[in-house]
């Protein structure tokens, strides 16, 4: 028996013993395994298999290798959608995180409890509505004769072509996205801000620091880990914009905002082309993986987390 084999076997023995030691723990996560196996990974496998097929709604599918992928990757609309998704998704994430942070700090400075609670509730509300509602709302408000333009006209300013000019396509999407999502992030930030050790403020005050300086040197650093976490979790959703652009796209602005999921819907689902849809979706999943890994590295997430 060589010396190489013995450490291997010994290592494996230790592993198994450890696993037995943790068997109660493993038991606790069994439901999760079962669920993901049945409801997530199995359908995922099916979907990926379908991406290599020409799937007919009835009858046996035909294997066509990577034809679906070739079709999708050669489609200029797919490439356009990919560019839009990445750009709009990432910028949106950054804007949402930044704006919400500013607002959270702002809200935190309100002393009146009633006002504080009210504005918190009001900023959280939009999150509860679906994009069908929010999209429709903003289409009306930003219409040529909608609230905003009427206000501009009353002030003697020019009416703005929010939906009829491609230049406004992305800004409108970014703004309405922030509008809808802000409250959710604000709550998350407020949570960490509120739990800051009060003695830190005391010490700073004694040193004569103004509140503004306290915000800069105490609150911001303490909230930073939250920012990083949300950045990483948000990365998994960067390519997921669908309901918003489905609801809010219009002929003039569509090209600058159409996303990958919209492409899958229009090219795959509505045309009953399941093979195309699953191939494009698999590409989206792989892209998401890459983005998440990159973001995690940039945020140096691993430093804080223990895995």
């Amino acid at each position: 028996m060589s010396t190489v084999a013995r450490p291997d076997r010994a290592a494996r023995k230790r592993l198994f013993r450890k696993m037995r030691q943790y068997r109660a723990i493993y038991l606790m996560i069994v439901p999760v395994f079962v669920y993901f196996a049945v409801f997530t990974f199995y359908p995922l496998g099916l979907g990926v298999v379908q991406s290599f097929q020409r799937v007919r709604l009835i009858g046996a599918p035909v294997y066509i290798g990577t034809d679906n992928y070739a079709f999708v990757l050669n489609d200029p609309i797919f490439i356009l959608s990919m560019r839009n998704s990445i750009v709009v998704g990432t910028v949106s994430l950054f804007i949402n995180l930044a704006v919400s942070l500013v607002l959270a700090i702002s809200i935190n400075e309100i002393r009146n409890r009633f006002a504080k609670s009210l504005i918190q509730t009001v900023t959280f509300l939009p999150y509860l509505f679906s994009w069908t509602v929010v999209g429709g709302m903003w289409l009306q408000i930003l219409a040529h004769n909608g609230m905003v333009n009427n206000l501009l006209a009353a002030l003697g300013l020019e009416r703005l072509p929010f939906f009829t000019s491609s230049a406004w396509g992305r800004p409108v999407i970014l703004f309405t996205n922030a509008w809808k999502q802000a409250g959710y992030f604000i709550v998350l930030y407020l949570a960490s801000i509120v739990s800051i050790d009060p003695t830190l403020y005391e010490a700073a005050r004694i040193d004569g620091a103004s509140r503004m300086k306290q915000i800069r040197y105490i609150i911001l650093p303490q909230a930073w880990p939250t920012v990083k976490t949300l950045l990483v979790l948000g990365a998994t959703g960067v390519l997921r914009n669908f309901d918003q652009v489905l609801m809010m796209n219009r002929p003039a602005t569509k090209d600058s905002i159409r996303t990958l999921l919209l492409y899958i819907y229009e090219e795959g689902i509505t045309k009953l082309k399941i093979g195309t849809a699953t191939a494009a979706a698999t590409i989206v999943m792989l892209l998401t993986l890459v983005i998440t890994v990159v973001v995690r590295r940039i945020a140096r997430y691993e430093q804080d987390a223990s895995y």
Partner: peptide, 11 residues
């Protein structure tokens, strides 16, 4: 599991 688009499993 958080990265899987719904369209992959829709049908």
């Amino acid at each position: 599991t958080m990265m899987i688009p719904g369209d992959l499993t829709l049908v």
